[in-house]
Each structure stands twice: as structure tokens, then as C-alpha cells.
Computed example of a mutant assay.
Amino acid sequence: MHHIQLSNTAFEGANSVYLLGDGDADAPTTLVDAGVASADVEAELRAALGDRGVAFADVDRLLLTHWHHDHAGLAGAIQSESGADVSVHEADAPLVAQSENAREDLHAAQEAALREWGLPDEEREGLLRFSADHRYLRGDPVDVTPVSDGDTVALGAFEAEVVHLPGHAAGLVAYVVEHEWRREAFVGDAVLPKYTPNVGGADVRVDRPLARYLESLERVQSLDLDRAWPGHRGPIFAVSERAGDIAAHHDERTARVERAVADLAPATPWAVSAELFGSLSGIHVLHGPGEAYAHLDHLAREGVLRETPDGYVPA
């Protein structure tokens, strides 16, 4: 297995792509994730694969952890040259395939969320312009093979099990592999080594986003992994501990959100976001209030807060 790092100036830093099976005549040449569809990143990926004697045309299989452009953007370009089979969870498959209905539904849900979260018109319109300006990063449409929780994907001498871990994205999955004495997984953005994946704004389709993500963290802990390969940065060795740390971080943030509502009530997600993160720009104008919303929604469902037409108030 070879870990390839690709640049990504539009979203969350360098992306990780993983090359499997090169040099093994009995295994399909496989990539896990693909990077954003920019000319610079495509050139980086071609060069990195070329160093291993692999061209886009040699790729037999692509395993996508979720639909976000920095993970799926180049899948279409790779598939157009190789005919590779592209696996992605059924919840994200229409977005990777670039179904017009799925795209329209997502954009409508995002616009509705931005209004419900209380974003000022200037911020909302700026975010929509940012999204339009970076739409090319999603790349070309892909002929996808939808997968579900519990499915397996053949990788030569071993298989990868699909484990559904929603929260950051509705269809985020890990691909769990057992070989020799190790149990490892390619986890996308389910667990990251240095910062916490955004919940609430990164995929507005997710219902109960914080609760779903906390459930996914518990499932990661139950997998008993020796090592995880994330979508950004390097490997995670103490996987269960890292998942627990992220859950504890969200407990602390929930307490901060509760205190913010006590001070600001009635408090919109946008107002709480300002308390948590300060001034925001670019994609973070979506992620900040989305994260605040995820915690506000969680507290409201727990009966700690109550949602009113003007914002959240203590219950």
C-alpha cells in the first residue's frame, strides 16, 4: 500500500489517496479516494502514480469514502481512462454520479439551511458564490457501484468490508481490511488525527447530525482497529482512543453551546457560530453555523434547549 498526499487549497488541507495492489498480478489496482478535480491536483496524482509505474488507465477499482469533492473529484477522469469500477455508499451515489435531481435537492437543502441558521444575506450570498466558483472541483460524472453497510469488496487475496459511518456525510464509509495480524481501515473523514471533521454543515442531508456522528464514533471504537488511514494527514494508531477524544471534544463543545444560548437567547446557529469560531470565510461560512446547528439540534432533542421562531432558548 502506498500513501499519496495531494494538495487542496479550497477545502481542508492536503488529501490522502491510497494505492493498493500495484505490482500484484492477482490483485486489482485500487485507489481509495481521488482528490479534487483541479488541473494541478490531477497532475500531482498522475505523477505520484507514475512513480509507482501506474497510469490512470491501469486503475481497476476506486473505493470512495464519501461524496465530497476533495475525495471523489477525480474519480470521473480516472474512470474515463480505465473503466474502473467505482464503489461509493448508496446514500452518496447519486451525488457522485451527478444526478441532476440529487444536485438540485442538495442545493435547495443548503439554501434552506442557511436561511434557517440565520445567516445574513451578504454572508449567504458570498457562500453561494464561493460554491459556484469551486463547482468545477467535483469533476466529471461517474458510473457508480452503490455499496451498503456490510458489503465486501474483493481486493485480491483479501477483502474490504464496508462500514457505514454517517455524520460528516450521509454516505461516509470505512473500508475495513484484515491481513496477517493487523486489522486496518481506510476511514475517510470519519476520524482525523489532528482536527475534528465538520458535522452539520458538511452534509446538510444528515438528520440528527451530531447524534449520528457520535454513534459512528462508537462504532469505530467497536471495530478494534490496529491502524486507521484517514482522508487527511497521516495514519492513526490509537484509533479507539482518538475516536474517544473526538467524542469528548463534542461533549465540551455542547457545553459551550449551552452556555452561549444562556447568554444570547434567543440564539441562532449563526450567532452561536460567532461565539465558537469568530469571523469565517470560504467554505467555513457553511461549516461554522452547521456545526453550531448540530449541537443546538442535539441539545433541543435532549430537552435542554427549545427552538423558537427567533432562535434557541433554554428549555
Rank of each mutant, 00 (worst) to 15 (best):
residue 156 G to V: 07
residue 149 D to R: 02
residue 23 G to M: 01
residue 249 H to V: 12
residue 99 S to P: 09
residue 187 V to G: 06
residue 248 A to Q: 14
residue 32 V to W: 01
residue 96 V to E: 00
residue 82 S to F: 07
residue 168 H to G: 05
residue 150 G to Q: 03
residue 263 D to T: 13
residue 142 V to S: 04
residue 264 L to P: 14
residue 266 P to H: 14
residue 288 G to D: 02
residue 146 P to E: 05
residue 211 A to T: 08
residue 119 L to V: 11
residue 174 A to G: 06
residue 182 R to F: 14
residue 94 P to R: 06
residue 183 R to F: 13
residue 196 T to I: 10
residue 111 E to V: 15
residue 43 A to Q: 08
residue 239 V to I: 06
residue 220 V to Q: 02
residue 123 E to C: 06
residue 152 T to W: 06
residue 28 P to I: 09
residue 133 D to P: 11
residue 113 A to G: 07
residue 134 H to D: 04
residue 181 W to Y: 14
residue 222 S to W: 04
residue 20 L to Q: 01
residue 234 G to K: 07
residue 30 T to E: 05
residue 132 A to N: 10
residue 139 G to T: 08
residue 81 E to P: 04
residue 34 A to D: 01
residue 211 A to N: 07
residue 44 E to C: 07
residue 53 G to M: 02
residue 115 R to Q: 14
residue 268 T to N: 10
residue 188 G to H: 01
residue 171 G to M: 00
residue 27 A to M: 13
residue 10 A to H: 08
residue 210 L to G: 03
residue 81 E to F: 03
residue 59 V to T: 12
residue 135 R to D: 15
residue 95 L to P: 06
residue 209 P to G: 10
residue 142 V to T: 03
residue 16 S to V: 09
residue 242 R to W: 10
residue 89 H to C: 02
residue 71 H to D: 05
residue 67 W to K: 05
residue 296 L to C: 04
residue 174 A to M: 03
residue 242 R to T: 11
residue 311 G to A: 08
residue 102 A to W: 00
residue 167 G to K: 00
residue 279 S to W: 08
residue 230 P to T: 05
residue 49 L to H: 01
residue 257 V to P: 04
residue 312 Y to H: 09
residue 75 A to F: 07
residue 151 D to S: 05
residue 26 D to C: 09
residue 247 A to Q: 03
residue 170 A to V: 05
residue 150 G to E: 05
residue 299 L to I: 05
residue 256 R to M: 14
residue 305 L to M: 11
residue 159 E to R: 15
residue 76 G to W: 09
residue 232 H to M: 04
residue 182 R to H: 15
residue 146 P to F: 05
residue 193 P to N: 09
residue 132 A to Q: 13
residue 80 S to R: 15
residue 66 H to S: 07
residue 115 R to S: 12
residue 278 G to P: 04
residue 47 A to M: 05
residue 125 E to I: 11
residue 23 G to D: 01
residue 88 V to C: 02
residue 255 A to H: 12
residue 202 A to C: 10
residue 35 G to N: 04
residue 206 V to R: 01
residue 239 V to H: 07
residue 72 A to E: 11
residue 222 S to E: 14
residue 216 S to E: 00
residue 67 W to P: 00
residue 259 R to C: 12
